[in-house]
């Protein structure tokens, strides 16, 4: 299953990268969202899949799934939510102020001069 997941993750990364390289701010945001999904799956896969029971001692199993990647991913999910929403609002405000979401036209104003 890990092999299959490796390819699934690869495809998600590919799509995310493609979206992030596009010119529309919206696609970039969707791309980042996709990228975090891919990363979570990647980390989970790297910890080994289906090695044992869910990491709850109440299960009384001989083997448990690796709890550490899960803890890391839980943190990452929530952070990703925070960052994505920040990004969303940034895009929304930028559009309100500047009237475009095209990255070519959103190029920063000249600095210093």
């Amino acid at each position: 299953m890990e092999i299959v997941m490796a390819f699934v993750v690869g495809i998600i990364f590919m799509a995310a990268t493609y979206l992030m390289l596009s010119k529309s701010l919206l696609r970039i945001i969707i791309g980042t969202g996709l990228l975090s999904h891919g990363t979570h799956l990647l980390v989970l896969t790297m910890g080994g899949l289906k090695n044992g029971a869910a990491p709850l001692l109440g299960e009384h199993a001989a083997q448990y799934n690796d709890p550490l990647p899960q803890a890391l991913i839980l943190t990452a999910i929530v952070i990703a939510f925070g960052v994505t929403s920040f990004f969303l609002v940034l895009a929304y405000r930028a559009y309100q102020e500047l009237g475009t979401d095209n990255m070519d036209r959103l190029r920063g104003t000249k600095i210093n001069e």
């Binding site: 869910a54 709850l56 001692l57 109440g58 839980l74 929530v78």
Partner: peptide
């Protein structure tokens, strides 16, 4: 602390 759940999930 014992079963699935916790601050994050409860809060969400």
């Amino acid at each position: 602390h014992y079963y699935p759940g916790g601050g994050f999930i409860g809060g969400l």
